[in-house]
């Protein structure tokens, strides 16, 4: 066992996951083994239905693996909790009856913060996510991208051991998505949060991630963990090569690959 796995924030060992349908039990993930080091940005990528969201839900504590083990900061038997703050894909993850500021401050208050401190910290994270002018608005008055910013602010303000993101930009238009990916990089840079992000977008994986955990097959297994730290921006050959490699791992054909690597 190497020293990186010893200090890992998250360790998944031969995790097996499935869910019940009216027809019986369906195995989604056959075997997932990987670890995430402190301050690492880990991406789980896989095609739709490979069980990557299920895997994230298991780390978040919403479901239990049918076999294998998940350790977070050395703990097993995970219940949902603010140490693994989740940003969901759905825009309606915010509390509609609370203002933007209150959506960020309220989780702090129930986790033992005094009201004044909670509000102060909430303001800090609202500024960090460029929401300062919308602090008093209600979620229904925000665009999808702004709602996801609030969700990110809410999660990071809790100072989690890990930030879990389940296709957080999947419902956004391409331009907003690209902008939020860049911003996320900047924010994580400042907060030094360990990240586990689930996506089906190779470009998101390459833009945001340090390591990309490829989940493929049905039921799926971790086929490879690709280091994408030094791929550079999309116009460098290294980026294109790595992307091609990911595409092969995922079994995506050229025709299915809609977003092309270099547009110009």
């Amino acid at each position: 066992m190497s020293s990186t796995t010893d200090t890992a924030v998250l360790r998944a060992e031969h995790v097996q996951l499935g869910y019940w349908t009216p027809d019986g039990f369906t195995l989604a993930v056959q075997d997932a083994t990987f670890s995430v080091a402190p301050r690492e940005k880990a991406i789980v990528i896989g095609p739709s239905g490979c069980g990557k969201s299920t895997l994230l839900k298991a780390v978040a504590g919403f479901i239990r693996p049918t076999a294998g083990r998940i350790h977070v900061s050395g703990r097993e038997k995970l219940e949902p909790g603010p140490d693994r703050a989740v940003v969901f894909q759905e825009f309606d993850q915010l509390f509609p009856w609370r203002s933007v500021l209150d959506n960020v401050a309220y989780p702090l208050r129930i986790n033992g913060w005094k009201r004044r401190d909670a509000v102060e910290r909430a303001r800090e994270f609202i500024e960090l996510t460029s929401l300062g002018r919308s602090a008093d608005r209600y979620p229904h008055q925000l665009s999808g991208g702004m709602k996801q910013r609030v969700a990110i602010a809410r999660a990071l303000a809790l100072d989690p051991a890990m930030l879990l993101m389940d296709e957080p930009f999947g419902s956004l238009d391409m331009i907003t998505r690209a902008r939020l990916q860049q911003e996320l990089n900047g924010i994580i840079e400042r907060t030094q949060t360990t990240l586990l992000l689930v996506t089906h977008s190779m470009d998101e994986a390459l833009t945001v991630g340090d390591n990309v955990i490829v989940l493929a097959g049905s039921p799926s297994v971790v086929t490879e963990i690709v280091d994408v730290r030094d791929v550079g921006p999309p116009d460098l050959p290294r980026y294109a090569e790595t992307r091609l490699h990911l595409r092969d791992l995922l079994g995506v054909t050229h025709e299915e690959d809609e977003t092309h690597v270099v547009d110009h």
Binding site: A60, F62, P80, G81, P82, R84, A85, V86, F88, E90, D92, Q93, L94, F95, Y106, P107, I110, N111, R154, L158
Partner: peptide, 14 residues
């Protein structure tokens, strides 16, 4: 009630 909002509530520790 929208299940996402309940999940968010449990996630923040409720």
């Amino acid at each position: 009630v929208n299940p996402t909002i309940v999940a968010a509530g449990r996630n923040i520790g409720l």
